[in-house]
Design a protein around this nucleic acid. Structure first.
Length: 548
DNA sequence: TCCACTAACACGTTTGAAAAGC
DNA sequence: AGCTTTTCAAACGTGTTAGTGG
């Protein structure tokens, strides 16, 4: 099972080459040029593995470098992006639409990889929808407990991933801070950016190699604002038009009639959405320039974006900025970090901060949680998120909310069953990363786990060469279906999501997942910033790199 | 009063097991 | 008996709406 079964239609699209994947079938060709990947210093960075067992790893890292990821249904994503994508979040969890599907190429067919997604705050603002556009409404609320969504097929060989589209359509978003299902927790009315991570999960890594590589891919057109109900009627219409599950709402006349039926009215009733649509239409006709695609803001933000300041509303008047600040036709960016770690960095692997989130709220059996990242400001201000933070300090950040406060008391932390990790210094959108790291002792690792991440501040942090950008904790976590929890109660250990026989249910913990653990650990390693090489490939050239 | 949020709802899709056919 | 195809009910996903609470 490469992907969710619902992907069959996408698979067909993949097999029939066409517009489904957009003009750029890979992130490299789409935007981030490859030259940076061929930079000699890059080889030195990523292939700096010691001889012997590391040789294979080095080869695999070359593969990591060459991995290309293309966003499926790019045009559809762009449509939403241009309108200002909104994603519903509910207590029970809501899928993303468009769903996140990618085509991966350039993998080593025999090497095993773990594919995972996280969703990080795009900025530190809270938004509101006024006058048919998104505006900054204040400071962002503390970040939710960040989580990762690992593709259920992970780990799988490169051939497996490249065989067809990789779908993350089962990923769900929630605003429930105590979500026991493993869904990705977000704040409503905040802007987020999904990121795809590919982690090499080779046997060598799982059992003692010196290095693990990963890369991060970001498609700016997949950014969105989380909402509990749709604000922009255009988004609603796009969803209805394109989401098969919303077919029942297609046709405005029918919907009006349906409302009339529901309300037992003799005459059609104009629904709120219709009213809003009409109101908006009238407003737009009255003010033709309110289109978010016009105006100086757009040009400015385009400039900012192209210069690594994406996701940041840095204009002088951020209160009146449209959501879709991304250039509509901007191609996806490809991140490429190259971080090499010294052997002594491995000392940080014995993190005493590992602990299970289960100690706090729930009892989801073997599900594992970890504390959330500190609020955005804390990440920016707290020295613990700076370069020389110790691993324990890194794990001492309290949760973002009271519901996780119970796990924030580090002093009382018992030996954790799993790892606690800090998110790495992921470079700005204009970069793409490969990271090598020391292998850590294997620990069980569920295929569905979660991580707390923060979108790197751009360009603020990226410009601080002495400090890594945003860091965050990971939460490791099994995903539980709600029915599962209902059936088994909060102590349920194994998920049974319909159509998605969760890997953790069918497979024993795989040693390959250790690579993902390493990936997680690597995030914390980045805190030391030792021996890190960072390549910004936005223009295909190595802008900066450091090697402690 | 406003607004974010929730639960219930109807409708359509997806899924997987059972039945039917070959 | 074994395999493939069809059928169908349950589960799931969706946007809408009324109600709630801060």
């Amino acid at each position: 099972m490469l992907q969710d079964k619902g992907l069959s239609e996408s698979e067909e699209a993949f097999r029939a080459p066409g517009p489904a994947l957009g003009e750029g079938s890979s992130a490299n060709t789409a935007n981030a040029p490859e030259p940076a990947l061929a930079a000699p210093s890059l080889s030195g960075a990523t292939l700096g593995s010691p001889p012997g067992p590391g040789a294979d790893v080095a080869a695999a890292e070359q593969t990591i470098e060459n991995i290309k990821v293309g966003l499926h249904e790019k045009e559809l994503w762009k449509k939403f992006h241009e309108a200002g994508t909104e994603m519903i979040i509910t207590k029970a969890g809501r899928r993303m639409f468009p769903s996140y599907k990618v085509k991966v190429t350039g993998m080593n067919p025999k090497t095993k990889y773990i594919l995972l997604i996280d969703i990080v705050p795009a900025d530190d603002h809270r938004y509101k929808f006024c006058d048919n556009k998104w505006m900054v409404a204040g400071k962002a609320e503390p970040a939710m407990p960040g989580r990762l969504y690992v593709h259920p097929d992970s780990p799988a060989t490169g051939a497996h991933w490249m065989r067809q589209l990789v779908s993350f359509q089962k990923l769900k978003l929630t605003n429930n801070h105590l979500d026991p299902f493993g869904h990705i927790i977000l704040n409503s009315m905040h802007k987020y950016q999904p990121r795809l991570h590919i982690v090499k999960a080779d046997e060598n890594n799982a059992f003692g190699s010196k290095n693990t590589a990963f890369c991060t891919h970001v498609f700016p057109e997949t950014s969105f604002i989380s909402v509990t109900s749709y604000q922009n009627h255009k988004i609603t219409q796009l969803k209805i038009e394109n989401n098969p599950f919303a077919k029942g709402f297609r046709g405005s006349d029918d919907s009006d009639l349906r409302v009339a039926r529901l309300q037992s009215k003799e005459y059609p009733v104009i629904s709120k959405s219709i009213m809003r649509q009409r109101l908006v239409s009238s407003q737009l006709s009255a003010k033709p320039d309110v289109s978010p695609l016009h105006g100086a803001h757009q040009a400015l933000q385009h400039f900012q974006y192209e210069n690594g300041a994406h996701m940041q509303f840095a204009s002088a008047e951020p209160q009146d900025l449209p959501l879709n600040t991304f250039p509509p036709q901007r191609d996806s960016s490809l991140f490429y970090h190259c971080l090499k770690r010294r052997a002594d960095s491995a000392r940080h692997l014995d993190l005493p901060c590992k602990r299970s989130y289960l100690e706090a709220p729930s009892s989801v059996g073997e599900d594992h949680y970890f504390r959330s990242p500190p609020p955005y400001d804390q990440q920016m201000l707290s020295p613990s998120y700076c370069s020389e933070v110790t691993p324990r300090e890194a794990c001492m950040y309290s949760g973002s909310g009271p519901e996780i406060a119970g796990v924030s008391g580090v002093e009382d932390l018992p030996p954790p069953p799993l790892s606690c990790n800090m998110w790495t210094s992921v470079s700005p959108y204009t970069s793409y990363s490969v990271q090598t790291m020391e292998t850590v002792p294997y620990q069980p690792f569920p295929t569905h786990f979660t991580a707390t991440t923060m979108m790197p501040r751009l360009p603020t942090i990226s410009a601080q060469s002495s400090q890594p950008p945003g860091n965050a904790h990971f939460s490791v976590y099994n995903q539980l279906s709600q029915s599962q929890v209902r059936e088994r109660g909060p102590a349920a250990s194994f998920p049974r999501e319909r159509g998605l026989p969760t890997v953790c249910e069918r497979k024993p913990p795989s040693p390959h997942l250790n690579a993902a653990n390493e990936f997680l650990y690597s995030q914390s390693f980045s805190l030391t910033r030792e021996s890190s090489l960072q390549y910004h490939s936005g223009m295909g050239t190595v802008e900066t790199w450091t090697d402690g």
